[in-house]
């Protein structure tokens, strides 16, 4: 039996966020996942990264601890997650009930010319997340798995890690706002905080 065709990244992001309410805060990694998030529709509760590679999951942790009544989804590529792999150990220790780390794993560094990443033939990110003590670890391979994950994003109650196996394609870029101060201020304003 041949493996199921991999998920398309833009459609996957749209599916995950289709039922999004105001209580979901989203932090993408830099690069392709930021373009995917922008393509799914801009939102003041998105904090797009244009740099700080390796920091997405930890921004999510600080945010999740500060906003326990909201849910936080970090959606990062495999390259971003690999650079901040230690964050999974830190998050596994803290166990925030309202933080989901979702990795769009295509096994390549898409922004830089599709060089193979460590996950293509070696590193198993789900194994790492499980070994770090993260409560729920999911391997999302198809539409049914994606729909399940989208449902969980509205109601999960322990730290969640998901690898979403996406195809290694490179859709046209959709560029979000890149003024960091403006992104920060509108995000805080959306939470009712002083800009």
């Amino acid at each position: 039996m041949s493996p199921a065709p991999k998920l398309e990244r833009r459609a996957a992001m749209a599916t995950l966020l289709a039922g999004r309410g105001d209580d979901l805060l989203v932090v993408p990694g830099l690069g392709s996942t930021a373009w995917d998030l922008a393509a799914a529709g801009d939102n003041d509760r998105n904090f797009y990264l244009w740099g700080a590679m390796g920091g997405a999951a930890m921004i999510g942790l600080g945010l999740a601890l500060a906003q326990p009544a909201k849910r936080v989804a970090v959606v990062a590529g495999d390259g971003e997650m690999l650079m901040g792999l230690g964050a999974l150990a830190t998050i596994g220790l803290q166990k925030p009930a309202n933080l989901a780390i979702i990795v769009f794993d295509n096994g390549v560094y898409g922004e830089t010319g599709m060089q193979p990443s460590h996950t293509q033939t070696g590193a198993d990110l789900i194994g790492v997340a499980e070994a770090c003590g993260i409560g729920t670890c999911l391997d999302v391979r198809d539409e049914a798995g994606l729909a399940d994950l989208a449902g969980r994003l509205t109601c999960f109650s322990e730290t969640l890690f998901a690898r979403v196996q996406i195809a290694a394609d490179d859709p046209p870029r959709v560029l979000p706002l890149r003024d960091g101060v403006a992104l920060k201020q509108r995000f805080r304003a959306a939470l009712g905080l002083d800009a």
Partner: peptide
């Protein structure tokens, strides 16, 4: 696990009002 995690943590905390 490494100090740079803390820089990102503090940024996330401030985004969330802490």
């Amino acid at each position: 696990t490494t100090e740079e995690e803390g820089v990102a943590l503090a940024a996330g905390a401030w985004l969330g009002g802490e």
